[in-house]
Simulated assay, not measured.
Amino acid sequence: MRRLGWAFMVLCMVFGLSMPAFASNHTKVKEWSEINELTSEIWELGKIERYEEAANVLKFTTENIVHIEEVLSLRPEQQRVVQNTLADALSSLQNPEWSKEKKLNKLTEVRLLVDALQTSYEPLWKKTGLMMLEPFITMEKGVSEDDSVAFHQAANLLLERYETVRPALMVDLSDDEVKLLDEHVSYIDANRNHIMTDTAHQKQLETAAADFEALFFAKKDNSEPSLFWLIFSIGGIISSTLIYVGWRKYKGDQEQLRVPDKR
């Protein structure tokens, strides 16, 4: 964790992130961009463990977000996603028994959700694609090496990461796309032992990984790496790139194995 903290500080300096301008002077929010700035502020406050201030800004944001046109135009079920995500994040900040990591995960849910509502081109949740594929790689490696401990740890990590990005997906993807991902995650969680030993279940794991890859990498992303990658604590940009390269190589090898020898 010390290395992660150091890496985060370095990237903050590189990308020019500044400390949040606190919202105590705000009296009313009229623009969606202001909500986006407030959620960034909340996340920054949580990162430096100023939970009471973060909770105050989050309360202010919750009171104002319901009047923003983009939120008012959402379907009722999507409005509930917004309300529940904000409420859960506030509860996490007010719970002294929750770890910093869990609190930041909840604040990240808010940050990704608000960005998804505002951004129409490349939302932040897409920048977590490498992080979503990493558990699949580890699970498939666990299967091939008969390492059930590594497999279960990776499955737990998938559940945790998916929970973090899911609110953003629910307002940005179609119902069918979210349902597909939900079914994959539920299937993996419910069939862990079968996946370790049964080829048919392992095929389902491969299908799930392919569907996640298709949705998270629907467009080639040439933008700067997202600092949100570090939230998931797997070693930064270099490790993430190696993970994806390894994943593509693995998929290529699998395709070659399926092609019959025509000689």
Rank of each mutant, 00 (worst) to 15 (best):
N191G: 06
E41W: 07
S144V: 09
K179L: 13
L180R: 07
N95T: 05
L158G: 02
F15Q: 12
P167S: 04
D172A: 09
E63Y: 06
Y51M: 01
E224N: 13
R3M: 09
A150Q: 07
F212I: 04
P225I: 03
E37Y: 08
H184C: 08
A116D: 01
L169P: 01
F60S: 02
Q78L: 07
G252P: 03
T164P: 00
V110S: 01
K100A: 15
P20R: 02
V82A: 04
W125C: 02
F212C: 00
A214R: 12
L93S: 03
Q204P: 05
D147H: 05
S226I: 01
L180H: 06
R75D: 15
E109A: 08
T128N: 04
R3E: 14
D115Q: 03
E213G: 07
W125G: 00
K141Q: 14
A54C: 11
K203G: 09
L173N: 05
D211N: 11
M131D: 08
S120R: 11
P96K: 07
A155H: 01
Q78M: 09
L169S: 02
R258A: 15
T128P: 01
N105E: 15
C12K: 13
K220R: 15
D189Y: 12
L93F: 04
E101I: 13
M1E: 15
D146L: 10
A54L: 06
R3P: 10
S40P: 03
N25D: 14
W247D: 02
W98H: 13
L169C: 07
E53H: 10
K220A: 11
D176P: 06
L169D: 01
S223N: 15
E206G: 07
Q118K: 10
K249I: 08
L17Q: 09
A210E: 14
D146Y: 14
L11Y: 09
D261N: 11
A150F: 03
L117M: 08
K251L: 13
F216M: 03
H201P: 03
I35K: 01
I231Q: 06
L104A: 04
S233L: 10
G246S: 07
K103M: 04
L158I: 05
K102E: 11
Q254H: 10
W98L: 12
Q83P: 11
I195W: 00
T164F: 01
I65W: 00
K220H: 14
I42K: 00
D211F: 04
I238E: 14
N56F: 15
I188H: 01
V185A: 00
I188W: 00
V66L: 11
E52M: 12
K262P: 14
T62P: 05
D198E: 09
T119C: 14
R50E: 14
E31N: 11
T27A: 08
